[in-house]
Structure formats: C-alpha cells, structure tokens
Design a binder for these strands. Sequence first.
DNA 1: AGGATGATCGTCT
DNA 2: GACGATCATCCTC
Length: 187
Amino acid sequence: MQTVALAKALIGLCLVRRSPDGITAGRIVEVEAYLQNDRASHAYGGRTARNAAMFAPPHRAYVYFIYGNHWCFNVTAERDAIHGAVLIRALEPLDGLPLMRARRASENDRDLCRGPGRLCAALAIDGSFDGCDLGAGRRLYLAPPVRPADRVRASARIGITRATSKRLRFYEAGNPFVSGPRSLSPA
DNA sequence: AGGATGATCGTCT
DNA sequence: GACGATCATCCTC
C-alpha cells in the first residue's frame, strides 16, 4: 500500500510551479489514491500511451486531459512496473494569487485551486509535464509543508463510476479549500 | 473510420 | 441538483 502512504503524506506539502510569468504555489489539502488492481485506475487493464507515466518511478508527474477541457495532475508512487498514483484534487493557495486569478478568471479565491482541473489551470500545469520529475529546482516540484497536516480523513473517491466503495480520498478536515460535495466531506 | 467514454467545471433552474 | 461543453484516447468494426 505504498500509494496510500504517499497519498496521506502529501497532505500538507506544498506544490510549487515556477513559470516565466511568476511563481504560483499551494498547500495540498485533498488527494485520491489510484492503485494496482483498482478498476477505477487509468492503468487497470494495462499500459497504454496515455497511462504510461503511471508506470514511471515514484515522484514523477502523471498528467492527463479529461472531458475535453481539463488537465489533471498526479504524483506517481510505485516502482518496478507497479502502477500507482495520487491525484491532487485541491490546494490551499499560498503564493502568486494574482497570477492564479489571471489564469483562472475566477470570481472567488476559494475556488482558485479547489478541484483537480482548477488547480492545474491556476498553476498552468498541462500535458508537457507528463512524466516529468518533481524534484527541487524543476518547473514543478514538491516542497516541505509550511504548516503540518491537521486531521486527515478518508472518504470515497469523487466522480468515478467503478470501484466506488473504496475509501481512497484523503483530505484535511475543516479546510475550506477542500473540494467535493459537502455530503462527502464528513468521513 | 467511427463511436463511446470520462479521476471536471461552469451555468442554469 | 441537473446538464451540456468538448476532445483525446481507446476499442471495435
């Protein structure tokens, strides 16, 4: 269950994006784990061109395009041809809010990074990041927490049609930047 | 070559 | 709460 351990450990970490336009960064407050033998995983059923990055070594990006509009960003978790990844579902905006507002055209700062597609828009994450390393000094990287994770809870995952009963969504309880239906927020 | 599907979002009622 | 947008990807013919 390496992927689940990573999912929980990511809560509270900072995701930092350096671009020519400036720095944007947020604190991870909500994630979902997608596992080996998980019918909801893009890699269930084997490797394809799209999901190849899911088979990459840990701490790489898996970025995919969905519903004709949105990019979604994952962190890979497993080694040796095991596929596992953690979808980043929401950030608490920390840095570069004016740039996020410009990219998102959002009325409401609470919604800047609340949702997997929204946070990719706010941080300008697209398919060019698929497979990229997320180490320090990159265009996109993970950084230590500015504030430790508080009250991490689990729930069912959102927006999927298969394996709906697995409780593989993890979020910081009470954080207003967590996404999803209110009914799912309580554990 | 064509059709179904989707780890979402914004808008409307 | 419901629905349409919109298109890359994958599967089937």
